[in-house]
Design a protein around this nucleic acid. Sequence first.
DNA 1: TTGTACGCGTTATCAC
DNA 2: GTGATAACGCGTACAA
Lengths: 331, 331
Amino acid sequence: MATLQEVAHRARVSIATVSRVLNKSDKVVPETRAAVEQALRDLGYRPSRVARRLRMNSGRAHLVGLIIPDIQNPFYAEIARGVEDAAYASDYALLLCNSDENPEKERFYLDVMRDESVDGLVLPPFDDTDPAVVELVRAGMPVVCVDRSLAQVKTDLVEVDNYRGAFEAVTHLLEKGHRGIALIEGRSEVSTSRERRRGYVDALAAYQLAPRKELMRSGDFKQESGRVLAGELLDLRKPPTALFVCNNLMTVGALAALHQRGRRVPADVALVGFDDLPWAEALDPPPTVVRQPAYEVGRQAMELLLKRITAPDRTPVTVRLLPELIVRRSS
Amino acid sequence: MATLQEVAHRARVSIATVSRVLNKSDKVVPETRAAVEQALRDLGYRPSRVARRLRMNSGRAHLVGLIIPDIQNPFYAEIARGVEDAAYASDYALLLCNSDENPEKERFYLDVMRDESVDGLVLPPFDDTDPAVVELVRAGMPVVCVDRSLAQVKTDLVEVDNYRGAFEAVTHLLEKGHRGIALIEGRSEVSTSRERRRGYVDALAAYQLAPRKELMRSGDFKQESGRVLAGELLDLRKPPTALFVCNNLMTVGALAALHQRGRRVPADVALVGFDDLPWAEALDPPPTVVRQPAYEVGRQAMELLLKRITAPDRTPVTVRLLPELIVRRSS
DNA sequence: TTGTACGCGTTATCAC
DNA sequence: GTGATAACGCGTACAA
């Protein structure tokens, strides 16, 4: 834990000189430079990121924040990896937090980010209008949204075409001859849910089918709610012949419900999920899914953030990535 | 982004007074206190964690680091949640990084941790003797190891009884009548692998069975290596009748290899894995596993770290948690 | 080319 | 009770 002071003393120069050789400002004669570098090595000097951050205006902390709902969800884990790899490639460290979609935790971590003077933030805003986030953006914090966008303020955004993904998934089921197609969505108020629902409805409409309320259920994106909702649907007097489940965890839950009731997939009931799963091939059966390029979402978000940090006044851009229907054996 | 200075000015007091009301030091008369609190609210003041960290000796950053190999591995994701929840409960933020078991990345993040003056670190040391970690511990950084321990220096440690877990798993297979039991382990040099192998060998010995080299394979903890190694074993002239696979990802890979070759589980070949999977119930078949209490590992590690931060001279303790054999349908 | 000195936002130790 | 003021470690404008 040597300081500039100590290095300077050992090299018999001033701290300014040491700072100069550190910051590559070339106005230092080779011999003193050599002496300083020697002292640096001897003491194993490392600059304090804390002191540096305090001194400098901003944009040089080389630290960014990422707030996601749940790192145990493979979709977010993959985004996180994309963000981190891109950050690491540029020598940025990552302050990673789980909000659990809990406003209190989200607030806490948002405060931490600000109080730590991070250079920027990437996040899937859990609430269109969260005043804390909006305020932060207005205060000049570089923010890149992923997956979902902010209503009241414009930021860089990396999103996936949810409408198209859902439309293709449901069309795929329709082409297989299904007409009773149920929808299991996540929390209905978030924008991604709305778009997927729209894709579902429009796909049905293209086949002259009206959406039936009893076949549309809202959950909370968790495994358990997928299990429960699929169960309810299967227990209907006229159960659906196919399930379109709007996220990965709920898909796993739906599969469990199917097994519990001894329904064969896809013979009795077909299934298409949203989000791919790393273990898809080992599932019973491997599910057909709409795969979101999550790693790419994270990577591009981080890259956008880096650009914004270096040029805070760029006009915000939106990157829209395409999902891909992966047909496996559940449909 | 108001500072103490501005608040003081607005409340017509000195910064010292403001600092006093913030730090609850009660030597301030009610009326001035009220005035200050008003100013605080008006300006939406938040203390800078950076400045605070620079000023204070240590142990008050309310920031700890966690370095894990791979957040996409459910085992580590669960540990991370345990750590984070415990941290959050004590108002600590978490600097979370993935090392990929890559020495270069590990080194980078370790440096970041030190340079950020984090209060402490929890990590599964990827190398018994990593000089960077050892040095950090010697320099006084509070460190709690999880899952694996450091050879050259003593730290707090939260581990799982790997030997016993493996012993029980293999004994379970032996009781089912299996005699040709193969072992698929991760990187053979890490301590957890050694212990699990020991459990495997001893369990066989208890049944008067000698371990057979051709049935013992080492991989790298990744899904693909599980698939490849299981494939090799199944293609043997005298293939094993049961597989004991030493981590979660490799278990999924082994399952895939089994399916590829049309082997029925457990009718043709039985399978027991190490580490539970959140999607276990949806796998084909749901695998019997040795479940490690990963969340608890993380939680207790963070709690130990908090104790060490407040009392750096405590003698290090080791917490050993018990794994649990969960019998499902693959054995 | 090198050194001195200030300020970043805090906390804590003095005086008053 | 309250107010100056000295650190904490660093970058940099300015002086030498």
